[in-house]
Amino acid sequence: MAIKFPSVEFFQELANRMQGNAAEFEKLGFCDTVMAVKVDGGDPHLYGLTFSCFDCTDVRELGGADELELDFTLVAPLALWREMFESIQKSGIPEPAYTLNSLSHVGDRMAVVYDDPEGHDKFYRFMATIQAFVNQASDLDIEWA
């Protein structure tokens, strides 16, 4: 059954898959961060994702960034999230221009919003886990908003 993007169900499915892929995420190590994904556009949405130990333990839609103590937020328009997930779906990992780091580095197609530099650095400390988390969408049947 197709899962709508953006939606809480979409990120919850990734969180469920993370538990199912325990060996992969245990190998990557502890991941402790509270981050958000913001899908910008005419109908913007903000989702909070809490990672603890080897799991994503909480997924929720947020009314505002102050509802959780966020380390950082990844902000991109819907079209870019779509391009990124479609790239992941081609071969299981994103093409070079569509890794989370590449999208958020020079050119700032995807913005990384943060207050505290230590929170910001968590994006890089846990990069392999967060990338693996989104890569799990590689075979999801996605219904685009």
């Binding site: 890794t99 780091n101 650095d121 968590k122 890089y124 400390r125 846990f126 990069m127 392999a128 990338q131």
Partner: peptide, 8 residues
């Protein structure tokens, strides 16, 4: 990606 995690 792997070296960046350590560095951070």
């Amino acid at each position: 990606q792997l070296v960046m995690q350590d560095e951070a």
